[in-house]
Simulated assay, not measured.
Amino acid sequence: MNVDLFDFTLPPERIALRPAAPRDAARMLVVTPDGLADRTVADLPGQLRAGDLLVFNDTRVIPAQLEGMRGSARIGATLHKREGPRRWRAFVRNARRLRDGAAIDFGHDVTATAHDRAEDGSWALVFAGEEPVELLLERAGRMPLPPYIAGKRDTDARDAQDYQTMFAAEPGAVAAPTAALHFTPSLLAALESAGVEHATLTLHVGAGTFLPVKAEDTADHRMHAEWGRIDPATAARLNAVRARGGRVIAVGTTSLRLIESATDADGRIQPFEGDTSIFITPGYRFRGIDGLMTNFHLPRSTLFMLVSALMGLDRIQAAYAYAIEHGYRFYSYGDASLLLP
C-alpha cells in the first residue's frame, strides 16, 4: 500500500510533553463500528465485560541514551537491541567518525568499542569491563525519551518515573509500552472488581519503533526485530479466556504484536520466546486479539498502519481527525484510545 494513505496533519500543540496526573485521568476515545465516544481511562471498567482479559507488557525501560567522545568527536548512541551479555546494537549519531574497533568513552568509567556496522547504519557496541551493562547504563545513560519530546525539552528526574509503567519488571526496553502508562493500582483494582482479568508478557521495545517509514510502499519497509516471550502458562490462560467467550484486549501495540506473532493459523496462542519483526498493515487477519487499548500514533508510522488494519483505514482516519479537533493529546505521554473492532 502507498504510505501516503497513512498520512495526516497533527498540530504541534497536540503533542503531550508530560503525562496526565493522575495517570488514569487521561482522556480515552472509544472507537467501535457504531461510532466514537469520549471517555477517560478511569472509565475503562465500564467499557469492558466481565470475563475479558487485558494483556500488559512487563518490559522495563533502561537508560539507553548515551553521550560520549571518540577523541575530539562527540558521539551519541541509542541502544535498541541486546545481542549478547556485553553487546548491544545501537543507532549512532555522528557515526561517520567511527570505524570498526573504535573506542567510545561515555564517561563515568564506561567505554565501548564499535563493531559490525549494519545496512541500516547501526553499530554493535561492546562494553568493556565485567560489571553488568545495566549498572553501567545506570551511571552513564539517560532515559531515551522519544525524539518528538526530547526535541522540545530536556529529560529530567520526573521522566525516570513517568516513562515507566506500573508493570515494569524485565529490564531491556529502550521505549516504554506507553498504553500501560495510564494504569494505576486503583484502576487495576476497579477492573478486577468488574470481573476483568489481566496477564503480562514481555516484549523489549526497540528504538526502531520511532524510525520513520522511508519507503513509498509498505511492501518495501523492513521492520527491526524485537525480543519477546510468552510463557506456556500465559498462553494457556489467554486461550482459555477466548474459549469461554471472553475477549483478549492487548494494552499497547507491543502486546498485540507479540500475541499475533505467537498465534497459529487456527487462532491458538502458542508459547513464544525469540525475535519478532511482524509488520501489520491493512489486509492482515487478526488471530489472537479481540481489541486494543493504545495511544495516538505518528502519521505514516508502522503503528498507525497497525491500528488502521485493526479498525479500517477510513474509520481510524476519522477517529484521529475527531481527536485532533477535540483536543486529545498525542503520542507517548498523550491520551488513549480503546479500539474494539
Rank of each mutant, 00 (worst) to 15 (best):
W227H: 14
R153P: 08
M311W: 04
L313I: 13
T276R: 00
D220G: 01
Y284E: 07
R268I: 15
A250C: 09
A194K: 08
D38H: 13
T276M: 01
D220R: 12
P232R: 02
A240W: 03
N239F: 10
I230F: 06
G107R: 05
G46W: 11
P177L: 09
A219I: 10
G46K: 06
F272S: 04
A225K: 08
A321T: 12
M311A: 15
R27P: 09
A199P: 04
D266P: 03
G121E: 06
G312E: 08
R99T: 12
R97V: 03
W227P: 03
P144W: 09
K152D: 11
L306D: 09
G228R: 09
H297K: 08
P299Y: 03
G195H: 07
K81M: 13
A309V: 12
A21I: 13
A250V: 09
V110E: 08
D24T: 04
M311Y: 05
G71A: 13
F167S: 07
I269M: 08
H80P: 05
L79T: 06
R93E: 11
F286W: 05
D34Q: 14
A16Q: 07
G51C: 11
G267R: 13
S193E: 15
T234L: 12
L201C: 14
D116F: 02
E216V: 04
L66D: 12
L340Q: 05
P147R: 13
T78Y: 13
I75D: 13
L238F: 02
F167T: 04
P63Y: 00
L145C: 07
D231I: 11
F8P: 10
A42N: 06
T218N: 15
D159N: 11
A318R: 15
S122D: 03
V205A: 10
L303S: 09
R86V: 02
G141F: 00
I75N: 10
D266R: 13
L53W: 08
G245Y: 08
Q164G: 08
A150F: 07
T184V: 07
W227T: 12
R49L: 09
R86W: 00
L340N: 01
M293R: 04
I249N: 01
D266M: 05
M166H: 11
L292F: 02
